[in-house]
Design a binder for these strands. Structure first.
Lengths: 353, 353
DNA sequence: CTGAAAGCGCTTACAG
DNA sequence: CTGAAAGCGCTTACAG
């Protein structure tokens, strides 16, 4: 283990000390750090060595004062504080914001009236852009209020972005399709499906992905195996009972999110149905509950933290663009990669009795 | 709704513009913003008005360059990345760090060997302090490696802080006691208890709180109703079966954390036991699963986000103190308030048959 | 209690 | 490709 630097209890290494050590100007060090500018290879190497030798890490706060990002204020307007994805969005958002030196304002709201108030507060606070996590990401009135004020809006994790808004999201259709293929490849033919809250855009899109998956495998849609849910654990419990408490129950159930899948699993546990031997279950989102329960849930992972980061980065770009060009411009759309998490809650279809 | 400022697409309001507007110097504005310094009431009012009129918000990044916090680097060393509390710790930590302009380095590790490597990396990166979330908060070897390097350590959410480390935590004993009182007041006399992982300090302390609660209610400890768990959902499932699959089952079960409580609940659902009418269940921590499952779980809320914030603030103070005095000094200990979340999983004890 | 000056660590803009 | 100067928005340290 290395010795601590003597100077440690006074302050950190600055760019100037690195410059001195490397025998160049601070500007050259700055250029090396910030990549994208050409520096002669010889100098670059020397600087890099000095950085290592002195254990230099750039002071982000100082950087952002000058680079212009630091004046930017982003609002995050949310309406569903208990949702487990919200923490992760904030986590990614704050991390990115601190990198950019951007400020973040959190604003909570409930119904439509309170959305108006919340938007006013954000406008008064002078935000330069607003990020809308689900379910607000699909709220036309909110988007309209913001847009009318000339404030760029970014919808996070929506399945179908509204016309004028930027968006960071995954392809819900492809995600559901991948999950369905996973089940059909395991030999499942009787697959139950639990829909989500009809007012959320991913609900329909995920269902469409499921249908496509059945189609590809030449499987018919079994109407009575499609049940309406509300994205809640409790609705999963109820849907699970409907699907499992029958003679010809499905060999697999695709719940439109993890919470509902967890509900189904509790019902199955209760009926003494072994998972995955007798029943495969999968969810969607890969929220914390997916790896809490047993067996752990096969699901589609949304990279929420990364999406939170990207949301900040994207809207900051949008804002700077607008400042430069003086007009709103086209919305930015970012599609993130999802991951199929093949865990223990799915397995080969049981043999016919 | 207010009109957007004309200047909005160029930049934010600065302290100087406020000063001009109020007819004072920037220093006076700075003093008003930063509270703790005396300013004549008349001037203060004028400044406050100007701040409001111009909609001024201080630029945190700029502030921290000068105020000295900005050079500080804090490491967060964690070993259990999937734990649901980790996100919240990070959330609070990053938020506070961005306020202070402090930088945060995340470092992940596994077993003891990898802890050594991780500590080396943090030391090389020149961190000025390290925060240890559970379960590393109780790892004597890790603490020792860090302390030997002269780096202040802060243990987060430990039940019993090691000698030389600072700590931010709740009182696990009082929390468990409050929960037990809640149950005994509801008339429960046969209360099952599921212990946590024996290697974590909260395990024993929560158990002691439970014992104290029984004692206060003049209830005997029923040995066969105390079951060992491991803080996992699966261990809760197994413990739940042990406790419920018997003639004289308890009327209430106190699981040492929420994940295990969720496991017990799944077992109860499976056996057709109604909650809370026939069985009360409570957990500990108030992690996301507590409000996901149904019925929602009565539990003890740890203010994790606030604890993450406080951890950064506390260790930054510690570091500045050490820089000033030139020596380590006493560890700082911060006790946060917990909240008893009385939800739907607990109710009056059922009548004797 | 108030202010003018200097400086935090970095980057932008201007020269070469 | 490289550097000297100026400046980001704020606070510290020094005068009054």
């Amino acid at each position: 283990m290395k010795q601590r630097r003597e100077s440690d209890n006074t302050s950190s290494v600055t760019i100037h000390e690195v410059a001195k050590h490397a025998g160049v100007s601070s500007m050259t060090v700055s250029r090396v750090i910030n990549k994208n500018v050409p520096v002669r290879e010889k100098l670059r190497t020397k600087v890099l060595e000095s950085i290592k030798a002195l254990n230099y890490i750039p002071n982000i706060a100082a950087r952002s004062t000058r680079s212009g990002d630091s004046g930017i204020r982003i609002g995050i307007l949310y309406s569903h504080p208990s949702a487990s994805y919200l923490n992760e969005i904030m986590l990614g958002g704050l991390e990115q914001a601190s990198k950019l030196g951007t400020q973040v304002l959190l604003e909570k709201c409930g119904g439509l009236q309170s959305q108006k108030t919340a938007v006013s507060r954000l406008v008064e606070a002078g935000v330069d852009g607003v990020i809308l996590p689900p379910p607000l990401c699909d709220s036309a009135p909110t988007v309209q209020m913001l847009t009318r004020e000339g404030i760029p809006v970014l919808a996070l994790a929506t399945a179908r972005p509204l016309p004028m808004v930027s968006a960071v999201r995954i392809d819900d259709f492809e995600g559901a399709l991948a999950l369905t293929r996973h089940l059909t490849k395991l030999g499942h033919k009787r697959i139950g499906f639990i829909k989500g809250d009809p007012s959320h855009t991913p609900t329909e899109v995920r269902y469409e992905g499921f249908l496509q998956g059945l189609d590809e495998a030449d499987l018919p849609l079994l109407d009575d195996l499609v049940v309406q849910g509300m994205f809640t654990y409790k609705s999963g419990l109820e849907a699970g009972r409907k699907l499992l408490d029958r003679e010809d129950r499905p060999t697999a159930i695709f719940a439109s999110n993890d919470d509902m899948a967890a509900g189904v699993m509790a019902v199955a546990h209760g009926m003494g149905i072994h998972i995955p031997e007798q029943l495969s279950i999968c969810g969607f989102d890969d929220t914390p509950v997916a790896s809490t329960i047993w067996p752990q849930l096969t699901t589609v992972h949304q990279p929420i933290v990364a999406m939170g980061k990207s949301a900040i980065a994207t809207i900051v770009e949008k804002i700077k663009e607008a400042r430069t060009s003086g007009q709103m411009g086209k919305p930015k759309r970012q599609l993130m990669k999802f991951t199929l998490m093949d865990r223990e809650s799915t397995g080969p279809a049981p043999h016919r009795d």
